[in-house]
Nucleic acid binder design. Sequence first.
DNA 1: CCAGACATTAGACAATGTCTAAATCCACGC
DNA 2: GCGTGGATTTAGACATTGTCTAATGTCTGG
Lengths: 129, 129
Amino acid sequence: MADLLRSHDINPTHQRIEIAHALFSRQEHLSADQVMAFVNTRHSETSKATVYNTLKLFVEKGLVRELIVDPSKVFYDPNTHPHHHLYEIDTGKLSDIGAEYMQVSGLPPLPAGTVIEGIDLIVRVRRAS
Amino acid sequence: MADLLRSHDINPTHQRIEIAHALFSRQEHLSADQVMAFVNTRHSETSKATVYNTLKLFVEKGLVRELIVDPSKVFYDPNTHPHHHLYEIDTGKLSDIGAEYMQVSGLPPLPAGTVIEGIDLIVRVRRAS
DNA sequence: CCAGACATTAGACAATGTCTAAATCCACGC
DNA sequence: GCGTGGATTTAGACATTGTCTAATGTCTGG
């Protein structure tokens, strides 16, 4: 895990390793407070500020991807390969859609002086009434 | 405007008409607090609770579409026809991408007992460094 | 061991949105 | 016109997520 951090130009401190472990051992989409909860299960080890700082750092360094899907919280995705997402509104459950199931084609004219940061495709589903 | 509301099964009260007007006269993507600001420019007329209640009602009734694009606030889109969105991270500017520029194909297997609520395609751009 | 840079922390703060209980509005029957 | 009842609006307290700051802690090269 320390090597993974180093390879992304991140100084592997104790807290960062814990947080990376929380994200990468389960291959799940976690929100900041879920990460907090996992990291601090045994004894309180890592502060809220550090969790937020570290997640932001991981995003900048391309280690994880930020998912803006729920109006109230951000999720972090340890899978940075191209894929899409399915969000179950009622339960808040977020899962991957393999790139083989859905394709996006075309590109819009971009505003001058801007570059693409990412393209997000989200399928929102709810329980059939 | 009252007729538009009635046609969507919404009782056209004074406040609802004001809010609908804010959204539909400018064809823009507004956040709840922008709606608040527009509605209350002259004299304070409409409370925060009513703005939130009304926007939620409009979404339920299919009058506007909810856009989850910015980690800190929800936008409301008066255009309910199929189209996609371009979000400028640095400025927070949100604009439409006509359906002719980008296409989505395929569908993932949906979890049992769920139906699609919507498919969102968002292109995020940032200022080129 | 020291200096200095880097990392972490507690807790105050900010922003967005929700909730509740009371007040207001309005259509209807009389 | 007047009262009734359901729908609507409201102020403000509250909850949640995330940011900021100033102080403290840690680590490394020399």
